[in-house]
Design a protein around this nucleic acid. Sequence first.
DNA 1: CTGAAAGCGCTTACAG
DNA 2: CTGAAAGCGCTTACAG
Lengths: 350, 350
Amino acid sequence: MADRDPAGSGKSAPVLRDVAQRAGVSVMTVSNVIRDRRDKVSEETWRRVLQAIEDTGYRPNRRGRSLRLQREFAIALTIIHPHERFLDDPYNTELAAGMSNALARRGYALVVNGAPKMQAMKDSLSDMSGVDGSAVMASGDQYNRRELYRLLSRDGRPLVVFQDRAPEDIADICAIRQDDAAGALDLAEVILQSGARSALFVGSTWPWPALEERCAAFRSKLAGRLRFETVAFEESSFSKLVEDLTLYFRAHGPPDALLGGNDQIAIAGMRAAERLGFAVPDDMSVTGYNAFAFREYVEPLLTSVQSPAYDIGAAAADALLTRLETGRFTERELVFGARLTMGRSVTMRP
Amino acid sequence: MADRDPAGSGKSAPVLRDVAQRAGVSVMTVSNVIRDRRDKVSEETWRRVLQAIEDTGYRPNRRGRSLRLQREFAIALTIIHPHERFLDDPYNTELAAGMSNALARRGYALVVNGAPKMQAMKDSLSDMSGVDGSAVMASGDQYNRRELYRLLSRDGRPLVVFQDRAPEDIADICAIRQDDAAGALDLAEVILQSGARSALFVGSTWPWPALEERCAAFRSKLAGRLRFETVAFEESSFSKLVEDLTLYFRAHGPPDALLGGNDQIAIAGMRAAERLGFAVPDDMSVTGYNAFAFREYVEPLLTSVQSPAYDIGAAAADALLTRLETGRFTERELVFGARLTMGRSVTMRP
DNA sequence: CTGAAAGCGCTTACAG
DNA sequence: CTGAAAGCGCTTACAG
């Protein structure tokens, strides 16, 4: 006989049997009431059971249900991020909030786990048995990302990958991303209009597929038409980034246009310019990417691209739940638009 | 006979029985190997079982284990926040990351759920059966918060409440917060030194116990020594807040010192001042609260108080896990220091 | 050292 | 309409 209350801390929750005893029926009948099978239970019994449920304060135990149905009613969000504080990245918080809300509406739970190191993640990933499927936002080189995706999609668990492409050799997968190339092309157009003759894309030494897409799109549009260069700094802290950029500007002079891989980088560029006495946008235009809430904190307002990250998170939840119901993903790839949002950080040609 | 693969999507995970069959032993023996009971299994059998585990790719199923042990190996973080995008609040993301990392180290999962409305949360809360305990960060009036706490601590589940006091009538609870009063007193001291003759505390119309603490501390120190006033605006969006503050300043003039209930509010105050042509800190000093990463985006650097929110999240995880092991919380209340961090947003008296 | 049995809380057939 | 049985994957006593 197992201990009904191993933590030793008070009354444990009533179970089906408790309700059945009180109502003087079998657990089966109570189960039928719980699952709303009106056709299986007489009016009179139904009432008695409802009363017993109320009296005991019974609520179904997710665990027994899960075990029997082989469904966990939970989805994981896995994040591989350079920082231990993986939720400091607003992209991740938008994804998480979007997923959480969409899942909650359908009675599913969101399990969040992040790790700064791919390896650590792979180890702890050995246990995905608590969820029905997962979504993943990963930095890292292509090889490691794919190995991670394979791990996460083991044992018939469907997987959504964010901001990346679906590897050919994984079948039960859906890739959801924003159209970063299109957004970057829009920004590039703005930069060309501004009359800039040099542009510097500032990325991260950490491999992020989305940043690579943005960079490639910028290059494709700008490379022939102005001096286009790229540089990458370590994603350690904002103040370190400001310092790195300050040193860079001091050594090479500021570009006519600074293209931030994201808004944080762009803002660091603005701070660095300020330190050196350059004005934005008069001495240097700046663009960002993603336009999350904090963009509005800074003057001049950054010209950027609005990320639909929250919607992407919600879409991932919906895609996963539909996949669990139907047995397959409706689409293999889902691409969200990313809309240009103008600020005042780019000079307008007179 | 139940369907081993209800979602119909490929090979399901191997279970104890599969390994046992392959190794030619009973499931018991495999279980003993899994749980590292070397004393219970002979060297020779041990090797055979290990080989079978490797061959089958077996990993223990958390669900069976949970059901048997009556332990979920999961902790919930519940957030009641005015916005649907409850993770946009950096306080919540720090708590979540701190909890997630501390839990992961001990093999526990973090389940995140947020809701904009207390009532919605109470409904969905009916099912806490998937976790061993939970932590909660809630706005709302005292009555609703306490009712929520009672719900969350039902059925012998331990509860950590963030940034609030532990209600007397709940036994199995631990309150963890930062010393907001002390932080506010430090800021008040800075304001007094600045020579300000009027100060305006800007809070939220949403009830947050922590904001109330900060406000009360400011009042206790400043009320007799300068003109101290308070105002609260709706937490809808940053731009709306800037507008509200602009209107307020236009109507009442800017105070000598603006005391933001948090950094976001303080920064909105800086933007509003700027709109009206007031300089910070020359025309108006500004202080914030919490000093999360984005504070560094804005010039002049905000004088604020460093929140240990990440550590608080980690402490919550540790407290809960220790409570689950020992049967009781080590402390009923845990108060973290909140350190003044100077910026350049407050005038220095010559 | 090894295994057959019981049971965690539930649901799915199948009998009455 | 109602119930006894079997089983989801595991672990805890208890026998051999």
